[in-house]
Structures are given as structure tokens and as C-alpha cells.
Amino acid sequence: MGVSRYLKLRINSIYYLCPEENIQKVVTFKEEEIHDSPYGPDWLTHLVVYEKEVIPLLTLKDDKKKSNSKTKLAVIIKKILFFVAIEVDEVLNFVEIKNDVIDMSLNVPIKFAKRALDYNGVECYVLDIDALFSVKE
């Protein structure tokens, strides 16, 4: 069985794992670079310009826990030619996880995550990349 690399991210107090192959860049956006979105599902409230394209900025952060910071840390996630930015609190490190561990992990009803697993005693959720690029939750 092979091994895949994931970038470990923290959003609020939840740890997410994002497949390395879908990571484009880690960036920061200034407050003035973040625009409200007039359209989209409820969770798509903001848009940003990245590489001369307007892309959705997704935030999974709780309203109560939103920071007052003037800049926001985000990870640009790509799928084929499309990009989505996701606001994060912290970017940790790359981790290697055996594919069969992922395959055997539990499906979870967590927004934008499809599987949950225990990594070194920490509960982590694997980001559902397809969900990020669609209107399903």
C-alpha cells in the first residue's frame, strides 16, 4: 500500500488534512483584498483575487471565533484548473499517512470533510476537495 502526503491545517480547534497534490500555495490576504460575494451558497461569503482570477474564499470559522486580524491566512487549493482559497488559523506540517489508513477511516458528517482519523493522538479530518469545488456541503 502506498503512502500519501497531507498538509495539516488548523481551523478553529479542528485539525484538517489536505492532500499535498491539491495544495497550490499558502498566502495571506489583506482585509482590503477580501470582497463580499453577492452570489453563492451560504458558506461562500467572500471572494479574493488570486493570480488575476476571482476565486471563492471559504471560511469554516465560527462567527464567534472570527479574528479581528487585518490579514487572513489562507491555503489555495487547486483542482485541475480551478482554485479555491480556504481561510485557516494555522498551517502546521506535512504528514505522511498510509493510504489504507485513509481508506479504513470513518466517514464523518463534518462540513467539507469526508473522513476522520487519529494521527498521533490527534483527531484529524481529511478535507473533501470535491465538496470545496461544488455547492454540496
Binding site: 452570489y39 453563492g40 461562500l44 482570477e53 476571482v54 471563492p56 469545488f133 461544488s134 455547492v135
Partner: peptide
């Protein structure tokens, strides 16, 4: 800054470009 297909998917049905 066109997002063509993606923005249509997200419901920007009347917007042709940004």
C-alpha cells in the same frame, strides 16, 4: 478576471465577467 464555469456553478448566473 473570469471564473467562467466555476462562478456559474456557484450561482453567478447573470454575471458574465468580473
Amino acid at each position: 478576471f473570469n471564473r467562467g464555469e466555476l462562478l456559474k456553478m456557484y450561482g453567478f448566473e447573470y454575471v458574465s465577467k468580473i
